[in-house]
Nucleic acid binder design. Structure first.
Lengths: 151, 151
DNA sequence: AAAATAATGTTATATTATAACATATATGTT
DNA sequence: AACATATATGTTATAATATAACATTATTTT
């Protein structure tokens, strides 16, 4: 499990942030989107889209794949969640107002994911991609291994 | 297109490397696996599994998804190709004998992919993941953008 | 040659994701 | 309020990606 003392706090924090972000952007965190966000924040682990669909169907049994994927798309578009490409899974963003060059530490033991944003990956690329100039646009950095609490 | 003068050279080089790697490891680059590797090396761009399947079916029309995926698995296991997680696609490895902490520059214009291996990402993670010790096991770093030749 | 192992063939199905069109809800304009 | 417009959701169908399970063939070992 994660190091958070009381996970309810994480979820509440995430919801508060989400509302703030949406207000600032003038977009709507509808009931459905909020529900999906809450379901994603059930833990610090990742969720798969079709697991999310099952969860959602317990609340509203008319939910179907597009219901989930549309909400996921919205939440990703506004930086409230991230897709973990190497897992085809989704995780809540812990700091949705200012994220640049983020990366993910994925624990193979507890399945928790930690998001980090402290490095400027673009610089690394610039310094390492050699003579040719590559203009980075989107960075996917996912590191799986064993987290400090599972060693 | 890529900066390679004559792409046949790249493909031949890749095949030579693959044979060497397989010999060294005592595994077999069967005809099927070699064919798949060649098809992947058709360009410096990435290939999708089902496109590969179509290509393969032109050669042997009994080919089916497991035909392709098994070869992909073999080639990945032995470092002869890589999966690009953010694209669900596959690309030939340009230096299969010694690769550690590799990353990919994906051009959104020409679809070419450049593999780089000069940085030690593990160090970056160590330096940036804070107090807690995370033991990295597998790194996925994919950077999409516009390559030097497409700007 | 027989047994064991590895590779491939084959059928079926699981998993992940989107297209296309219908309906409902909210927002802006007269 | 009535209407128009835009946004969100409902619904059906299907596309795209990947694997399980078992049968057969080829290769290697004994």
């Amino acid at each position: 499990m994660s190091s958070c003392k009381n996970h309810k706090t994480c979820t509440n924090e995430a919801l508060k942030n989400a509302k703030m972000v949406c207000k600032k952007k003038g977009v709507k965190l509808t009931k459905l989107r909020e529900t999906v966000l809450k379901l994603i924040w059930k833990s610090h682990s990742y969720v798969k889209a079709y697991d999310l669909l099952e969860d959602l169907q317990r609340i509203d049994n008319s939910a179907k794949p597009p219901t989930v994927y549309r909400s996921l798309d919205f939440l990703m578009e506004h930086g409230l969640i991230h897709k973990i490409q190497s897992l085809n899974a989704y995780v809540g963003c812990s700091h949705p107002d200012a994220h640049d060059s983020c990366y993910f530490l994925i624990c193979n033991e507890c399945q928790n994911i930690e998001e980090h944003c402290s490095i400027n990956i673009n610089d690394i690329v610039k310094n390492n991609s050699g003579r040719k100039s590559f203009l980075p646009n989107q960075v996917t950095l996912e590191i799986s291994g064993v987290c400090g609490e599972c060693t």
